[in-house]
C-alpha cells in the first residue's frame, strides 16, 4: 500500500504544483494501471457513484485538463499528468485524449472537483458478441442486436482462447460463435478496433 499511497500523493502533488516531480514516479515503480489496484479502502458505499471515477464524452480540452460530459449529467474536469497511464487500443500517451472521445478515468478527486487521473481508458468497449461473418482483417459482430464492425489491427489485435496467453492468430475464431471483445470505439460509428478477443478454442 505504501506504493499506492505514494503514487497518489505524487499525483496530487503534481496537480497542485508542489515539489514532487514525475521523475520520482518512475523511481517508485511501474506506472502501469495494474500497480494502482493493490487493496485500498473502499470509498463509496455499494450502489453509489465513485467520486474517484469519471465516465463521459470529451467535450473540450485545455492543455492537460479534459472536460468530459457524463451520461449522468455530471461534467467532469480531469487532470492528465505525466504520471497518468492512458489506454487507447493500446497503452499510449496523454496527447491521444481527443475531443469527441469517450472515456473512463480513475484517480483522486481533488478539492475543487478536479480529478487527478491515475488511469484513463479512451474509447474502450467490452462487448459480448456473436460473430456473424469474418472478412479480411475484419469481424462482423452482433452485440445485443446491434451490428458492430470489428477491425483487426495488425500487431495489436490478439485472441485469448480459453485462458491461454494472448496470441495474434485469429484463425480459430468461428462464425456463429460467441466471443467477448475488448476494443476501441471509433467515435460516432458502429466500428471498433479490436484489442483482445476472448473466445473458445
Amino acid at each position: 500500500m505504501t506504493g499506492t499511497i505514494g503514487r497518489r500523493t505524487l499525483l496530487t502533488s503534481a496537480v497542485l504544483g508542489t515539489s514532487a516531480t514525475l521523475v520520482g514516479a518512475t523511481a517508485m515503480g511501474s506506472l502501469a494501471p495494474e500497480t494502482a489496484f493493490a487493496a485500498r479502502a473502499q470509498l463509496p458505499e455499494p450502489g453509489q457513484p465513485d467520486p474517484n471515477f469519471a465516465e463521459g464524452r470529451v467535450v473540450s480540452r485545455d492543455g492537460s485538463v479534459v472536460m468530459a460530459s457524463g451520461s449522468d449529467g455530471r461534467l467532469h474536469r480531469i487532470q492528465l499528468t505525466g504520471g497518468t497511464s492512458v489506454w487507447k487500443l493500446r497503452p499510449t500517451t496523454v496527447d491521444q485524449v481527443l475531443v469527441g472521445d469517450g472515456l473512463y478515468a480513475r484517480g483522486v478527486l481533488m478539492p475543487g472537483g478536479l480529478l487527478a487521473a491515475e488511469s484513463v481508458w479512451v474509447n474502450i468497449v467490452n462487448l459480448k458478441v456473436h460473430i456473424t461473418a469474418i472478412g479480411k482483417n475484419v469481424l462482423y459482430l452482433d452485440h445485443n442486436g446491434q451490428k458492430v464492425v470489428g477491425h483487426v489491427v495488425p500487431g495489436t489485435s490478439a485472441a485469448v482462447y480459453n485462458g491461454t496467453a494472448a496470441i495474434s492468430d485469429l484463425s480459430m475464431l468461428k462464425v456463429g460463435k460467441h466471443a467477448q471483445v475488448i476494443g476501441a470505439w471509433r467515435p460516432d460509428t458502429n466500428e471498433v478496433d479490436l484489442a483482445t478477443i476472448y473466445a473458445a478454442a
Binding site: 473502499q42 463509496p44 458505499e45 455499494p46 450502489g47 453509489q48 457513484p49 465513485d50 471515477f53 469519471a54 465516465e55 463521459g56 464524452r57 457524463g70 451520461s71 449522468d72 469517450g102 473512463y104 474509447n123 468497449v125 467490452n126 462487448l127 459480448k128 452485440h143 445485443n144 446491434q146 458492430v148 467477448q180 470505439w185 467515435p187 458502429n190 471498433v192
Partner: peptide, 29 residues
C-alpha cells in the same frame, strides 16, 4: 468481467439502466 450501463457513449448508448432500473457505469454495482 465488466459491462456498461446507464446509456453512455458508443455501443453503451442504448444499454439502459438494467433490470433494477438503477444501473450506471459510474456506480459500484
Amino acid at each position: 468481467s465488466w459491462f456498461c450501463c446507464g446509456n453512455s457513449w458508443g455501443p453503451c448508448g442504448s444499454a439502459g439502466t438494467g433490470a433494477c432500473g438503477t444501473c450506471h457505469s459510474g456506480k459500484f454495482q
